[in-house]
Design a protein around this nucleic acid. Structure first.
Length: 745
DNA sequence: TCTCTCACTTC
DNA sequence: TGAAGTGAGAG
């Protein structure tokens, strides 16, 4: 574990940073002639892995380095090394700091997200993990081309509420269940240069959402308890653990660092895209979302009406045959009026069940059936932001930031600004202004600005984390149809490390000593597990997980940095660390595409503690485990077969349907749906789909009648009544092919 | 509500 | 060709 072996040092040049030291150097000169350490540097020792930044005269480099390496391996204090070596301010050794960057992040597939958000967010989570859809993709710009960056994503609770889907609306159903262990996902390409990041769309499609707390693919990295972005332990993993029926907000982070291990002490730039907020569900509640995803997710193509292999197509074909037969039968019996009525009904429903063009996914139903499509959309909008919504739960785009959730965290320096959003508005300008006075007049711990496309830059006064969290949530009231711009929060972890009149030094020795104790870089803030608010807040969410860490860290708990340093000097360190099961898990890192640092500071969740966590958490959330068999909400939640967002297709017998909607649809649908729009406009597609349209009608009729009628316009109700009669007629015939699904070819 | 299986899809 | 992702639907 020697310095020279870890980080190649070129004699006469600077050696770069170390993750245990603040990313940014303290202002004062850290230089100290070895052997003549200043008073404030009483017990600094060279950590085994070379935490100090060193600059060595070329001629002396070799012997000095030998000494240093020896010291590092033996724990000899600097004072014994002689006067030749100098510690230099880290600042001068941080080439990364020399080039300013100004990252901007653009959310890709924004149109899809907008639709997603507008219709009520819903994201499926499964035990084995389900990918996010829409996929979280961003495009970065403004990065330093040569600097290396780590791009991360995590998902935080958006509020403290539990939700339920009632009357086609998401409603607050109580207080949130205990939070799941925090987990973050590092983009597998990290670290990479800014040039590399900017050359492509950064996608996080491999991130999976799960409700399985027993998932053991998490590996912890401890952050300082006062870290601006992440506090306490965060685990890495490809799966994020979420609570079902809770609202979440994905976050995107850009960290300028070339090593994962430097994350805890690196500067974070955090970006929020409010339209990516969602409610985690184990089964789809909102058919709008279901249809939106079916229409846009390639893997769900089989469920599209246009899909070649749609499972129910056979059933629909059967239904179509039955319907044709029925029509003929009626005509033969002189019921042409009914047919006409039925046709009207079909015209009404056709827009909702149109096949091919449904991929556009734009709500067109509301255009013709405002009582259905629009009312729901508005209702959901009202629901989310209206009186029924949990006040505390209204996340502010500004307070979705970590400081909000980590109440009581020290003031942090953060920059809040809305990044460039082409075509977007500085959506936060108003909301930030609506923030409470507390959030506006607190010390300038957070500054915010809006950077539109050359837009005015606005700054709002900073605020303290806790107060800002509660207050700014009130500013979260987002008009559902408003254009979104990302919120970014830049946090400088080093700011937290700087303490007292000699910022940085008071902390660095502790870190160094800590490393010395353990012989492993733990990334544990000396005070992180002190029995205080930090600890309790930490354990509140993931106590069992931290049990191991905190227990192992007992030796450092309650020690300030001075004590730590003293302890280091006295060689008291190893005792506590020896109990820690710190083993590098390279295979897991490899699974994430992470380069294993030679320091190896990642350690896994001990499986036993994961199990304990699962038990604890499941106990806390056990209300959802055992359900009365009669409380099957499926009976109360009819599954609608129609698609309120499909683009209607002109059909042979009703060709006037909504063809005019297509241009706007295509425009609204954006690039993702352009193809679908084109398909919709294609005569061929019409010809092909008209048949399935009829099928869709039948399908619609077979299942949607329960909830459709209340929202339909009068003439549609009449048609619905007619359709229902047809449905009843067909349903009996439908049962047979349905049951024989497995037997069907 | 949750979990599992199924048929279907993409890659 | 098969692994993996997908919603439907049953339990």
């Amino acid at each position: 574990m020697s310095l020279s072996m870890r980080d190649p040092v070129i004699p006469g040049t600077s050696m770069a940073y170390h993750p245990f030291l603040p990313h940014r150097a303290p202002d004062f000169a850290m230089s100290a002639v070895l052997g003549h350490q200043p008073p404030f540097f009483p017990a600094l020792t060279l950590p085994p892995n070379g935490a100090a930044a060193l600059s060595l005269p070329g001629a002396l480099a070799k012997p000095i380095m030998d000494q240093l390496v020896g010291a590092a391996e033996t724990g000899i204090p600097f004072s014994s090394l002689g006067p030749q070596a100098h510690l230099r301010p880290l600042k001068t050794m941080e080439p990364e700091e020399e080039v300013e960057d100004d990252p901007k992040v653009h959310l890709e597939a924004k149109e899809l997200w907008d639709q997603f958000h507008k219709r009520g967010t819903e994201m499926v989570i499964t035990k084995s993990g389900r990918r996010m859809f829409p996929p979280f993709k961003v495009r970065c710009s403004g990065l330093d081309k040569k600097a290396k960056y780590i791009l991360l994503m995590d998902i935080i609770a958006a509020d403290d509420c539990r939700y339920k889907f009632h009357n086609s609306r998401w409603m607050v159903a109580g207080k949130a269940d205990p939070e799941m262990p925090k987990r973050m996902y590092i983009h597998p390409d990290s670290p990479a240069t800014g040039e590399q990041w900017m050359s492509k769309v950064v996608t996080f499609h491999k991130l999976k959402l799960t409700n399985n707390i027993s998932d053991k693919h998490g590996f912890t990295l401890a952050f300082p308890s006062d870290h601006a972005t992440w506090q306490g332990n965060y685990s890495f993993g490809t799966q994020t653990i979420l609570n079902s029926m809770h609202k979440y907000q994905p976050r995107f982070h850009i960290v300028r660092a070339n090593d994962i291990l430097k994350l805890p002490y690196s500067t974070f730039r955090t970006y929020l895209f409010p339209e990516t907020e969602f409610i985690a569900v184990t089964a789809y509640q909102n058919d709008k979302i279901t249809q939106l995803k079916i229409d846009n997710n390639p893997f769900a193509k089989g469920f599209r009406d246009t899909g070649n292999g749609r499972r129910e197509k056979r059933k629909q074909l059967t239904l179509q045959s039955m319907r044709v037969f029925d029509e003929r039968h009626k005509k033969e019996n002189g019921t042409s009026d009914e047919s006409s009525s039925e046709q009207a009904a079909f015209n009404c429903f056709a827009q909702a069940s149109s096949p091919a063009v449904s991929t556009v996914g734009t709500s067109n139903l509301k255009d013709l059936c405002p009582s259905e499509g629009e009312s729901d959309a508005e209702a959901e909008s009202k629901e989310e932001h209206g009186p029924e919504a949990c006040d505390a739960g209204k996340i502010s785009t500004t307070t979705s930031e970590e400081p909000c959730r980590d109440k009581g965290s020290p003031a942090v320096k953060a920059h809040l600004f809305a990044a460039a959003e082409p075509g977007g508005r500085p959506r936060d300008s108003g909301r930030l202004d609506k923030a409470s006075p507390d959030s506006r007049h607190s010390p300038a711990t957070i500054s915010s600005s809006t950077r539109g496309l050359g837009a005015e830059e606005r700054r709002s006064p900073g605020r303290e984390g806790a107060a800002a969290a509660a207050k700014a949530e009130e500013a979260r009231a987002l008009p559902g149809k408003e254009a979104f711009a990302p919120l970014t929060v830049q946090t400088d972890a080093a700011a937290h490390l700087a303490q007292g009149p000699l910022p940085g030094l008071g902390f660095a020795p502790g870190l160094a000593g800590q490393q010395f104790f353990n012989g492993h870089p733990l990334f544990l803030h000396p005070g992180q597990f002190a029995m205080g608010s930090a600890f309790s807040s930490l354990t509140a969410g993931m106590g069992p997980l931290l049990a191991t860490v905190s227990g192992a860290s007992t030796g450092v708990s309650g020690l300030d940095s001075t004590a730590m340093a003293s302890a280091a000097a006295q060689g008291l360190s190893g005792a506590s660390a020896a109990t820690l099961p710190f083993h590098l898990q390279q295979h897991v890192l490899a699974s994430q595409g992470l380069a294993m640092s030679p320091f190896g500071s990642l350690f896994p969740y001990p499986y036993t503690y994961m199990a304990a966590a699962a038990a604890a958490s499941s106990a806390a959330a056990s209300s959802s485990v055992h359900r009365h068999p009669f409380l099957n909400l499926n009976t109360m939640r009819p599954r609608l077969r129609y698609s309120p967002y499909s683009i209607p297709v002109p059909v042979p017998d009703g060709g006037s349907l909504l063809t005019t909607a297509l241009p706007s649809m295509a425009a609204a649908a954006g690039p993702l749906d352009a193809k679908a729009a084109a398909l919709a406009a294609s005569p061929a597609s019409v010809a092909v789909d008209s048949g399935s349209e009829l099928n869709s009608r039948s399908s619609t009729l077979s299942s949607s009648s329960v909830s459709l009628s209340p929202k339909l316009c009068p003439e549609k109700e009449a048609a619905t009544s007619e359709l229902q009669s047809i449905q009843r007629l067909v349903s009996g015939l439908e049962a047979k092919p349905d049951r024989s699904r497995s037997a069907s070819p």
